[in-house]
């Protein structure tokens, strides 16, 4: 493998990995506040891209993206308000199946609104062949956009959870819901907020990646599976580890093309997922002692 090709794969891997990381962080935010895995996480990414593509016909690109993110956040909030909030002591199986049902409805809704066609946002700067060259590395401006957006999101989230009162209240909820409620935190609102946050993050990532990977009504399912793989790889609930794991997964997947046919690329991530689940279900960076205390 030439050096140029090596960097090409690396850049592609990091780009996809950044999106997986954002999806994984989205999984973790909801998991921490409710203890459920939101199977509709990938659909947020798809919706963000799709709505922005529709709006960009009438609005400037930046406004279209902002509106798409806001709308997806609204959908996330509605999802929690209509389907999760009023359940009394739902079992994990029940919540799991509910989010699966929602993901199917969102996907089928998208199919009927936007059809089966593959769409994409225009490149934010230049076009598909614009590239900046740094020695052996050729970088598309869109890749920079993706990395910048994902990096900023993760950093902002980190600050939010550690510095702001609201973020700390959410963390308190994640640690112990009853105790948080006793301290006067409105735990139910925190759950809604977690859905809104992770919907917004997913939607923004969906807009950023759309010019590169295109958006289709069913592109959410694969993203959810890979995002979940990243979340597990980093240890469920650990957001910063999920970012590292997401990048790692993206790079692994990009280099796997040199070994296995393209048709099996999805299978690579899934095999990795199964392997981790079998060997180290608490994640590469997690500790088994902590994992045992959690109710999966």
């Amino acid at each position: 493998m030439s050096l140029e090709l090596f960097f090409q794969y690396l850049v592609a891997g990091i780009t996809y990995g950044a999106v997986y990381a954002v999806v994984a962080v989205g999984f973790n935010i909801i998991y921490n506040s409710t203890g459920i895995i939101n199977f509709a996480q990938g659909e947020f990414v798809m919706l963000g891209g799709m709505i922005a593509i529709s709006l960009v016909q009438w609005l400037p690109l930046a406004w279209a993206i902002a509106a798409a993110v806001a709308l997806t956040m609204l959908i996330g909030a509605l999802m929690e308000l209509c389907c999760i909030r009023w359940l009394r002591q739902p079992s994990i199986l029940q919540m799991l199946i509910i989010t699966i049902g929602i993901s199917i409805l969102l996907r089928e809704g998208a199919l009927h609104i936007w059809g089966e066609g593959i769409r994409s946002l225009p490149y934010f700067y230049g076009d598909a062949i614009t590239a900046w060259t740094f020695g052996p590395v050729r970088l598309s401006p869109q890749v920079v956009w993706v990395l910048l957006a994902c990096g900023c999101m993760v950093a902002a989230l980190h600050l939010f959870f550690n510095r702001s009162t609201l973020g700390r209240e959410m963390r308190a909820c994640a640690v112990n819901r009853t105790a948080a409620a006793l301290c006067g935190i409105k735990t139910r609102n925190m759950v809604t907020l977690s859905f809104v946050l992770s919907a917004g993050m997913g939607a923004l990532a969906g807009c950023m990646i759309s010019p590169i990977t295109y958006t289709q009504y069913d592109s959410g399912a694969a993203l959810a599976l890979k995002g979940f793989t990243a979340a597990i790889l980093g240890g469920l609930g650990n957001s910063m580890a999920a970012v590292a794991a997401g990048l790692l997964l993206g790079i692994l997947e990009a280099f796997s093309i040199t070994l296995v046919p393209l048709a099996f690329q999805d299978a690579v991530a899934v095999s990795l997922l199964l392997l981790i689940l079998f060997i180290k279900p608490h994640g590469l960076f997690g500790s088994s002692a902590v994992a045992r205390l959690k109710a999966f």
Binding site: L93, L96, L225, V270, L273, L277, F296
Partner: peptide, 21 residues
């Protein structure tokens, strides 16, 4: 040995691999 979500995702992963194959 896994429970809840892990089992769901592991079987989902298995199904995806069969589909891809």
């Amino acid at each position: 040995k896994l429970r809840g979500h892990y089992l769901a995702m592991a079987t989902l992963g298995f199904g995806t691999i069969i589909y891809r194959m």
